[in-house]
Amino acid sequence: MFRAVISEAKEFKKVIDAASNLLDEICFEVNEEGIKARAMDPSHVALVSIDIPKEAFEEYEADVHDIGVDLEAFKKIMNRAKAKDKLILELDEEKNKLNVIFKGAATRKFALALYDVSSSNLQVPDIEYPNEILIKAGPFVDALKDADLVNDHVTLKVEDGKFIVYAKGDLNESETIFEEDSESIISMNIGENAKSTFNLEYLRDMTKAASSSDILKIYLGTDMPVKIEYDVAGANLTFLLAPRIES
């Protein structure tokens, strides 16, 4: 049995959007504690981890199930949510469907086909990072947009206590500098200077579900995967992205 009620369908939509930007399909592992999912994108460059504790739901009841869904189909259904809709997710074990129900001015039901997506048993690897930056999503996404003007990859740097988003193209360059006392920065826990370069489109996709005032936790080392964490609608989203390395 699995049944979960979410008070704001629109908020849950962000979680599905975040996953569907990077993944084609996902396996939600549900149990009495909540929902979790871990998956790598098809090119094995990015990892997505979603944790939604049962407390994030208005009502929640589940025993152990693996619920595999096509994210494109799920996303299209979630796009139909209205602003004040409640969302009910329930597993129909007989028909092998996930019922996605919007409750608002009317009750609208979708039955989403289940796929045999095996649960990945992936863990977010426990990497030790020298630097941890808490930054408002809005200014960080703006820095990525600036970088996007000059190249398709971007360098994230910690240099002399500053967090720098830097891009260099054949002709042009862009740079955003966040000092520790900047109003964009919540906190910086700096261990050492560091520098890693990343594909910009992945970074954009990973930060798309965040509202501009949401707080991103960015973990950064040198030529290491970047880890970006934030919360949406009581769900914890964690992304890992492999760097581009000089060859």
């Binding site: 790598m40 090119s43 094995h44 460059v45 990015a46 990892l47 690897p125 990497i127 990859h153 370069t197 594909n199 290491m224 995967p225 890992l240 492999a242 760097p243 581009r244 390395i245 000089e246 060859s247």
Partner: peptide, 12 residues
């Protein structure tokens, strides 16, 4: 020139 590496390169 930099090259995209995979996550698995870090988790061996």
């Amino acid at each position: 020139k930099n090259k995209q590496v995979k996550l698995s390169d870090f988790f061996r």
